[in-house]
Amino acid sequence: MSTDHYTLSSGEIHREPLSAGTRAPEFTLPTTPDQTVSLSDFHGQPVVLAFYPADWSPTCGDQLSLYNQLLPEFQAHGAQLLGVSVDGVWCHRAFEEDRNIHFPLLADFEPKGAIAKAYGVYRDDVGTSERALFVIDAGGIIQWSYVSPVGINPGADGILRELEALSTTVELEEGR
């Protein structure tokens, strides 16, 4: 994969999660029945990409509800949070309404899991993505990635730590 291209060539598949220093593969995915979101829409600001296996997690205080409540903290760092699963847009809409989710959930639905595969976090055996986090800097480079053990909600400590580090770097650069 060339380091400067910004579109996902069809069928690009990574078996291992993309690591820090890699350019984040571009994508355009539906977020509602009539809207799409592209990674490049957020060029110039950090992006937190949260892959999760499925809507309707039965746990109390699940990962997405937690992130939803932490949106002001992410926004304080100028970051945009995007959730991604293989569920379709109607499923996302019902889930968002039920849980009062206020950030975009993207449907990696057709071709199924293509973006999860591009980021190296697709699980062939179960047909969903891993529970994986990517913090992408304002220039589109992955600064941190993390794959949570199956069944363990990763929380937000890693994300907040990376966003703090990115903010510090920006301040240092601006201070020069």
Binding site: T59, C60, G61, D62, Q63, L66, Q69, L70, E73, I152, N153, P154, G155, A156, D157, G158, L160, R161
Partner: peptide, 15 residues
């Protein structure tokens, strides 16, 4: 406390 918890990796309740 909520933010401190999130920064410590609270991932649901109880943690």
């Amino acid at each position: 406390q909520f933010v401190g918890g999130a920064r410590s990796g609270v991932n649901g309740t109880p943690t």
